[in-house]
Amino acid sequence: MPIKRTHTEKDTLDVIIIGAGPFGISLAAHAVANDLNYKLFGYPMDFWKNQMPQNMFIRTPHDFVSFSDPKDEWTIHRFADETETEIITPLPRTTFVQYGIWFAEKAGVEFTPKLIHQVELTDNMEYRVQTETGSVFYARNVIVATGVEHYKYVPEILNALPSSVFSHPSGYTDFNKFQGQKVAVLGSGQSAWEAAGLLHIAGAESELLYRRDHANYGGSYQSEIDLRELGNIFYELPIEQKSQEWGHSPGSVAHFLRPYVEGKVPELGGVQITSVSLTLDGRAKIDMSTGESREFDHIISATGFHINLDRVPFLNQELREQIEREDRFEQFPKVDEHFQSNLSGLYFAGPLSSHSHGPTFRFILGLKKTALTIIPHLLKRQPVRSANI
């Protein structure tokens, strides 16, 4: 049951944006330009800055990584000119983080560096948002613009091991702690190749194990254009075409990772893990479908992320149960052409919108379409109180 309203009208924000990464910052830039009374919650660029290795690169070519503001003023190229920063592809992760902070400053975006503890619906269809420190805010609209941090996926089979001997690559800013250790990297995608290459650089003895028969390199400038354009039409496609595109990816492993792995990291493709166990000396033993067994000091499960609305920690159970889900894909919220859920004023941006709007929105490529859709709809949907009033 919705909670009772305990504040006055003047205390109500036009919009609260949850998530201070590329999607959240871009949405806030459009909110600023439209004089909306907003708050952007989260630690600026935290996932890119503190949850990923900093001596690696952004997969997307630099021409496509610009955030979105209404006039397309604060692009990566303008950042390069004004800061005298050399922009290259692949783009270093540190440069991308610096650009994100620069963009926010130029666009007038203000951060509220707190995590959200809970979002609830009030009795008059506004949203009550409580931070980790107990502060409470009310808003007519809430945009959930978080990334993939809540959705780490580790195969069930690894749960037979203590967590001390396996981990997901998300959360590591470097792999120096594994120097001198033997480490298995499970997975056939971008994060697996990245982890294996960085482990090798850090002085670990890494090895790639994956089910594919061989490495699947892909990605091109044209494929990025095609993926971006797909986001503009996906929502209106017939279900048959949507089904073909849901698994679309610009290539499993970017070509720029080849020199970090090939000839340096042993690869064993075409294998499945049949069982894992702990040896007497505390190492991880992996049994494979080939009949071989190998022992490692640690396993990096580079098995990606499984998007699931039920794993968003700040949406309470009552609210989650009111959110309509995609048919046969209940882990995704069903959102309309404006990225709005069935609950008026509750929007989803980024990965959580990627089933309704397509794979483009799992990537930076979806920023502009998202911001240019949500903010105008939010303005038209109901009267909003300008920050100038």
Rank of each mutant, 00 (worst) to 15 (best):
P2V: 10
T12A: 12
L13I: 04
L13N: 05
G24S: 10
S26I: 04
S26V: 07
H30S: 08
A31E: 00
L36S: 01
Y38W: 04
Y38F: 06
K39S: 01
Y43C: 00
Y43N: 04
Y43T: 03
M45Q: 12
N50F: 12
P53C: 03
N55E: 12
M56K: 10
M56P: 00
M56F: 14
M56A: 12
M56T: 10
F57I: 02
F64M: 06
F64G: 05
S66E: 11
D69M: 06
P70D: 10
P70S: 09
D72V: 08
T75W: 08
F79N: 01
D81F: 06
E82Q: 15
T83W: 03
T85I: 08
E86W: 03
E86Y: 06
I87E: 08
R93P: 09
F96R: 00
Y99K: 02
A104R: 01
E110D: 10
P113W: 07
K114D: 03
K114W: 10
T122F: 02
N124M: 03
M125N: 15
V129L: 09
Q130W: 02
V136E: 04
Y138N: 14
V142D: 01
I143P: 00
I143F: 01
V144L: 02
A145T: 08
A145V: 10
H150N: 15
L158M: 13
P162N: 06
P162V: 06
S164C: 04
F166E: 01
P169Y: 12
S170A: 13
Y172N: 14
T173M: 11
F175K: 07
Q179D: 09
Q179T: 14
K182C: 06
A184C: 11
L186Y: 05
A192P: 01
G197I: 05
A204M: 09
A204S: 15
L208I: 12
R211E: 02
A215T: 15
N216Y: 07
N216W: 04
Y217K: 03
Y221C: 06
E224R: 04
E224T: 07
R228S: 05
G231K: 07
N232G: 07
N232Q: 13
Y235R: 07
E236T: 10
L237A: 09
E240L: 07
E240H: 09
Q241W: 08
Q244R: 14
Q244W: 08
E245A: 15
G247E: 05
P250H: 03
H255T: 11
R258C: 01
Y260F: 15
E262I: 14
E262C: 03
G263E: 13
K264L: 15
E267K: 14
G269L: 04
G269Q: 08
G270N: 10
I273F: 02
L280F: 00
D281E: 13
K285Q: 15
D287Q: 13
M288V: 05
T290A: 06
S293R: 09
R294L: 11
I299C: 05
I300G: 00
A302D: 02
T303S: 12
H306K: 15
I307A: 00
N308F: 12
L309G: 01
D310E: 14
F314W: 05
Q317W: 08
L319M: 07
R320M: 15
E321Q: 14
Q322W: 09
E324I: 05
F329H: 14
P333F: 13
K334N: 13
E337M: 08
E337W: 03
G358C: 11
F361T: 02
F363N: 10
L365I: 11
I375F: 08
I375W: 07
H377S: 03
H377P: 00
H377K: 02
Q382S: 13
R385A: 06
N388R: 12
